[in-house]
Design a protein around this nucleic acid. Structure first.
Lengths: 206, 206, 206, 206
DNA sequence: CATGAATGAGGATTCATTCAT
DNA sequence: TATGAATGAATCCTCATTCAT
């Protein structure tokens, strides 16, 4: 009896295809509303095959959430390490990378997903805090401290609450995924105005 | 077979109890993972009784989402209307009310809920933009414009991107619902430092 | 607290109103698809009130089915008792009464209902057999025997299978309630042609 | 937890088994009183499996109602087409086939089902008229016309009301499903006497 | 490895019936 | 008596997961 049977594939590639399909669907519909069958269909494979790569739906989600961590962080850490880079330039670069690699790609939905489903999957939130947020805040603290010591900041206390620097980024994610269709937000301006608020104009010593 | 007591109640009160129960559960688990039976149980009534007040789960959710809109907005609009109120005091009050009425109540889960279910219930996102976000930004624009014209702002351009003022609030919600258990965030300081960054120190004219 | 409360009514009349409402709905939708609440609404009373008159839905149905027995039977029995009435005239009268009192009134649905739901409510079928069918066949046997002995019948054996005389009546019920909308049936002709088939032309002796 | 054996089966056969189970239950209890779970149990499969073959209960019913159309009709149409067959023999064969294939099988409940659910599923009644009744009457008209032209009929007008020929069949169904337990009906005799009433004795020219 | 038919626990919704007012 | 809010058993349908092929 002839049976349709896909070519065997490199497991890593197959796995990636499943993750990609799952990502698209989770992002669009959320965790609960996504059916494993749809993930399989979108990946072009049979239902059962998904289970050869992921033990269950929850693990598919958490591996997805953990796996797409952006390389932005690495680039920023490098920038920050180089003391020659002016802090404002580093932050500016951070926002630019964020826009290019997250906000303007499908990855922005991933962040929404984590924010949305995070509390239900504590492992995911924990992973995000440890791998992304904590490291990011670390870099920001260094950058802001350096900026403060250079006298670049309008309010040096900012260095104590680096979450404020993340705020516009989170807000841009939320806005673009939820409200953009009702009212446009110019994210470039958002970040620029924010930087202008944080930093004293160049050559302006107080 | 023992039968629970039938307690008749004022319909408005009963309805409010159901909404409260539903809110707690939706906020905790999300839409899909909340069972109508649990809502009923938490409201202290039988399964069928929920359906005397809401035609189905979806309507329970959407009425809920529309109903918990905070009265903060009204208070702020009033403050802003009064030209005697210094803009910074108004914003300070806004954050204080936000902390008291949202961040420190179960209402803080609302944003997450909208973030999670928004794509599935577009009406909810639309409602939030129209009734909350849009009105909120309107008030902020007025306040910021007034502050700018008074020379209170370090960077008057802020008035053009009032979303920046909302950003710390959104961030505080996300932090407290997702990461607070891993790392504490002092939201009072968050808002204070932000205001200090926005506004020139009192009596400081540029 | 003022409470809407219908005038007290003659219980017999109230009961009749409920039966009428139930009849209309059962006839239209069948037993299962009829809700007690709709019966009450149609009778202009509250849900609970129905239960003051009928212990449950099944009894409402069976009392209905038993209660609307037509007075046709009595009239026919009287006709048959009178030996002066020619058998053919008696049968002709029977069909005429059937058309006027059943086929062309809402009662035709009642019959359909009994045929349809009968096997599920054996009490109803039993009642119908005992009170209607059995008595009807009794009369028919007498009439057909008399006709046979008078030499009126083309096939005297008919007297042994009086169900044949009921057949066109049942068929007319089924046709008018199920197929009339797709293809018209002239029931007057149906019965006339049938009588012409049963009986020899007048004055024709074999 | 013991798990029943998963038996894979030819889809066509599985489908047929489900239809058979559903038919038995619908016929016995009617549409509303039949539970999908019982259908599955009777077919020897799990609840969910039914839904792999039919999208919902309604479709199961309507496909069923359309599917059990008897092959009788085809056989009769063939008989009628052959002009050599004496009309009386053809009708006799029709009743014989009807007894064998409908009256003495579970199919006899079909009429009751249509009678009961017709108003709720108008498509079913329409289907029956179009596919069964209309075609059947067509054949009967041809047969009766031929019989009339050959001078076989006691009353040639019968050809104008072929429903009369169906009447004993319908009556036999109703009797056997409703009243047989209270009073026996000899259906063989029913049809024979009817044919003797319709047709002149052989060799008897009027 | 891959398939997809089969499974059955789970959850939304309905509605006959009850009973406090 | 009459009311209608409240109850909860009953039933349809979904979908994550399994496993024979």
């Amino acid at each position: 009896m002839s049976r349709k049977r896909r070519e065997k594939r490199d497991p890593q590639q197959r796995r990636a295809e499943i993750l990609a399909a799952a990502f698209a669907l989770f992002a669009e519909r959320g965790f609960a509303a996504t059916r494993m069958e749809d993930v399989a269909a979108r990946a072009g494979i049979a239902k059962g095959t998904v289970y050869l790569h992921f033990p269950d739906k929850e693990r598919l989600f958490t591996e997805l959430a953990s796996g797409v961590a952006s390389p932005i962080l690495g680039e920023i850490e490098e920038l920050a390490r180089n003391e020659a880079t002016p802090p404002r330039a580093a932050l500016s670069m951070f926002y630019a990378l964020f826009r290019r690699d997250v906000l303007e790609t499908e990855r922005r939905h991933l962040l929404r997903l984590i924010l949305a489903e995070g509390p239900i999957f504590p492992g995911v939130a924990e992973f995000y805090h440890r791998e992304i947020i904590s490291r990011g805040l670390g870099v920001l603290r260094i950058l802001l401290a350096r900026a403060a010591s250079r006298g670049d900041l309008r309010n040096p206390a900012i260095a104590e609450v680096p979450q404020l620097v993340i705020a516009p980024a989170l807000t841009s994610i939320i806005w673009t995924t939820l409200f953009e269709r009702y009212e446009h937000l110019d994210t470039g301006k958002l970040f620029d105005v924010f930087l202008d608020t944080l930093f004293l104009p160049e050559g302006d010593a107080r």
